[in-house]
């Protein structure tokens, strides 16, 4: 059941971000939100399918194909995942750093994949303000989302 909720709701998060943007709120990259959640909080065994759900959502709002979205979201997660065990203590700071790193990595990877696989997309432009807002907004937003379905069902229990 939790998987049904994930594949129904998680991709729509990218569309909800459109409402957020239309309302004039600060730019928020949902791809970064998913990267941080998957890398720091998600159940490791479920990661591949969680990643697929997130990539499906990004493919709704981005021109590049689904496998490119899997790479764009999956590579930062694969890099950050081994660092999860280090993130004790200063959780807020680590989350902010991870969010900022992902906010830089995601457009860079989108640009690189666009060039390599001839699938350029508008999301390949790095926006300094988006990096700043990702570092500031995503940690508190994750606190809320981790208490809501479908994210709550996939949080790793320690």
């Amino acid at each position: 059941m939790r998987w049904l909720w994930w594949f129904v709701l998680a991709p729509q998060t990218f569309l909800l971000a459109g409402f957020w943007r239309d309302a004039g709120l600060p730019p928020l990259d949902v791809a970064v939100l998913f990267c941080v959640f998957l890398a720091l909080f998600a159940d490791r065994a479920a990661l591949p399918w969680l990643l697929l759900g997130a990539a499906l959502g990004r493919a709704l709002v981005d021109e590049a194909s689904l496998p490119v979205q899997i790479l764009v979201l999956g590579v930062p997660v694969a890099v950050l995942l081994p660092l999860r065990s280090l993130f004790f203590g200063q959780r807020w700071l680590w989350q902010a750093v991870a969010a900022a790193a992902c906010a830089v990595a995601v457009p860079r990877l989108a640009g690189l994949c666009g060039r390599l696989f001839d699938q350029p997309s508008a999301s390949a432009q790095l926006d300094g303000m988006a990096v700043l807002w990702a570092a500031l907004l995503l940690p508190p937003l994750l606190v809320v989302l981790r208490r809501l379905p479908p994210f709550r069902a996939f949080e790793e229990r320690t």
Binding site: L47, P48, S65, L66, P67, L71, L81
Partner: peptide, 22 residues
């Protein structure tokens, strides 16, 4: 599994195969 997330790497490899045989 914590050190080497096989499933995640497998999905990334699958994405590369996908791009090779679209």
């Amino acid at each position: 599994a914590a050190v080497f997330p096989v499933g995640l790497y497998g999905m990334l490899l699958f994405a590369l195969c996908w791009l090779t045989l679209p």
